[in-house]
C-alpha cells in the first residue's frame, strides 16, 4: 500500500513525471521505485509533499534532478548527472555515486549528499535565511568554482576518494559573500577567491560538521563517521558582506549625506571651498 514501481525504460520524461505527480497527489502513494532510468529530466520537480520517497534503483536519472523540489526525498543508487537540486527549496537527495556539474545552483533549503565526486560550479549562489539553511555534502572531490557567489548555506567536501586530484579545484569561493565551506584537508587550496579567509573550526562548526557527517554515513554505510571526523578540517568564510563595494563609484563624486556637513547646520564656507 502506498508503493509504486515504475519501469522507466523507453518512458519519455514528461510521462514519467506525470505518473509520479499523479501517484503522489491523487493516489496517496508515499514511495516510488524507478527502474531503468535512462536520463529522464526534472524528476521530483514541483513536488511539495514531505513524506514522499523516490528511489532510482537502476539506471542514471537525467539533468535537473530535484529542481524546484520542495519536500520529498530522492535516492539514486547509481551516478547522477548535472543540475541536481537547482533552486531546490526543501527535501533531501542522496546519490550513491558521482554527480555532474552545476549542482545546488540557487539552493534555498534542504540537503544533498553525494557519495563520490562532483564536477564544476557546485553550490553557486546558494542562499540562506533564518532557519532555511541548505547544505550539500560531497564525499569525494570537486572541480573549479566551488561555491561561486555563495550567499548562504553550508558546503562540506570530504575528499575521501583515492585519486591524485586536489580536494577542490581552482577559484573556489570566488564572489562568496555569505554561508560557509568546510573542507576535510590540511592543505589550503590554491587560487582561492579573494573574498574568503581560512579559519579553524570552532565548537559550533564542529557540531554542524558532525551532524552532517553522521547523516552522510548513515546512508553511505561503507564510511565510518568517527574515521572521517578524526581528520583535519578547515573552514572558509567571506570576510566582507560587500566584496565589490569598493569597485563601483558614483558618476560625479560628491559626498554621501552622512559625510555632508551642511544638512541643517551652520556652515563654514571658507573651510569647505578651501
Amino acid at each position: 500500500m502506498g508503493l509504486l514501481t515504475i519501469d522507466a525504460e523507453n518512458l519519455y520524461y514528461r510521462d514519467l513525471n506525470a505518473k509520479i505527480k499523479e501517484a503522489v497527489r491523487k493516489q496517496n502513494i508515499k514511495k516510488i521505485i524507478i527502474k531503468n532510468a535512462r536520463g529522464q529530466r526534472f524528476i521530483g520537480t514541483g513536488l511539495q509533499e514531505k513524506d514522499v520517497e523516490i528511489i532510482v534503483e537502476s539506471g542514471v536519472p537525467g539533468n535537473d534532478l530535484a529542481m524546484f523540489m520542495d519536500g520529498p526525498t530522492i535516492k539514486v543508487l547509481n551516478n547522477a548527472q548535472d543540475g541536481i537540486g537547482n533552486t531546490m527549496n526543501n527535501g533531501k537527495v542522496f546519490v550513491h555515486g558521482d554527480a555532474g556539474d552545476v549542482i545546488a545552483y540557487g539552493m534555498r533549503n534542504g540537503k544533498i549528499f553525494i557519495k563520490g565526486s562532483a564536477g564544476y560550479r557546485i553550490g553557486i549562489h546558494m542562499k540562506e535565511y533564518k532557519e532555511m539553511i541548505p547544505s550539500i555534502v560531497i564525499g569525494g572531490k570537486t572541480g573549479d568554482f566551488l561555491g561561486e557567489y555563495m550567499a548562504g548555506g553550508i558546503i562540506l567536501v570530504l575528499g575521501l576518494t583515492k585519486d591524485e586530484n586536489p580536494i577542490v579545484g581552482r577559484y573556489c569561493a570566488t564572489g562568496m559573500h555569505g554561508g560557509v565551506i568546510y573542507l576535510r584537508t590540511d592543505k589550503v587550496p590554491t587560487y582561492l577567491g579573494k573574498e574568503v579567509k581560512v579559519f579553524e573550526l570552532n565548537e559550533g562548526d564542529k557540531a554542524k560538521v558532525k551532524e552532517l557527517v553522521e547523516e552522510f554515513c548513515s546512508e553511505f554505510k561503507e564510511y565510518n563517521s568517527n574515521d572521517i571526523l578524526n581528520g583535519k578540517f578547515i573552514k572558509l568564510i567571506p570576510v566582507s558582506k560587500r566584496p565589490y563595494g569598493r569597485l563601483y563609484s558614483p558618476g560625479n563624486h560628491f559626498p554621501l549625506p552622512e559625510e555632508n556637513y551642511f544638512s541643517n547646520k551652520k556652515v563654514d564656507i571658507e573651510k569647505y571651498y578651501y
Binding site: 536520463g39 542514471v60 537525467g62 548527472q81 558521482d98 572541480g143
Partner: peptide, 19 residues
Amino acid sequence: EESSVLEVCNKIDSVWHPK
C-alpha cells in the same frame, strides 16, 4: 550525458569526467 550510454552498454568498467 552518461545515461545515454546505458542504452547500449550494461557492463561498465569505469565512468569518469575529464577536467
